[in-house]
Design a protein around this nucleic acid. Structure first.
Lengths: 120, 120
DNA sequence: AAACGGTTTCGACGAATGTCGAACTCGATC
DNA sequence: GATCGAGTTCGACATTCGTCGAAACCGTTT
């Protein structure tokens, strides 16, 4: 675990602070990969709705058991989409008893928001 | 052109005003498709860099001839990516003389930014 | 400890995506 | 009006992605 590579998870790298608004200056080359990964995660209709449900959930978290029945696709596919969101750094997951709860990561959301703000 | 369907282009639909911040309430079902399309457009490293160059360009616009040499991929692929950005509503294109100039659409950028703002 | 319910992982499949070269379009210039 | 240069469209191809069912995992309950 002392290798020169990245011991931190992709999600953590993505959550790192970064970047002036798009309208002001070009994105640093090193930040492109992580940021585009986050946008890609939001670039699917199901995942965008999942993110919406998670971010607006009462108490800041929501159970997978409340997410799954809101869609007409299989539970395995929901699980797959949640994994994509998690790996992009947009959400975290915590298991409590039999259930898994997801939370939004406001830090990365704030970054993406600031990046796109044309009035900044 | 009087059919009940949508006479307006996809890009125009996407540019329509919409949606409270994610952290406040769920995205209306009708808005999901257009919004996820915009995020998907930003979800590719090349396109995110293109968007960055366009949005931060001096005078608010930039020529394709200035975009292409910044990448190591073919001109046809750049053209394809610009088309995706245009169809998502994030940019507009205008031909003047031999050259084509791209501009960012601040209205849609502002929408996406507001949607992701966790502090709104 | 056996059985159960919620969730994730695995393996597979068709559809969508990123890339390229060749051919085409549109203005400008000779 | 023939040619040239900038940019787009067209086919084609390999890769990635979204989806599913089956199997595995992990707490809980009996």
């Amino acid at each position: 675990m002392s290798k020169s590579g990245s011991p931190v998870a992709v999600a953590d790298r993505n959550a790192a602070a970064c970047c002036a608004p798009l309208a002001q200056s070009r994105i640093p080359k090193e930040a492109v990969s992580g940021l585009s990964q986050a946008f890609k995660a939001l670039g699917d209709p199901i995942r965008l709705q999942l993110m919406s449900m998670i971010a607006s959930a009462d108490g800041g978290e929501i159970c997978v058991c409340d997410l799954t029945p809101a869609f007409e696709i299989s539970g395995t596919t929901i699980s797959h989409h949640l994994k994509v969101l998690k790996e992009s750094g947009l959400v975290t997951a915590e298991r409590r008893a039999s259930w898994v709860y997801y939370r939004a990561r406001p830090d990365l959301m704030r970054q993406l928001s600031a990046l796109l703000d044309p009035d900044a």
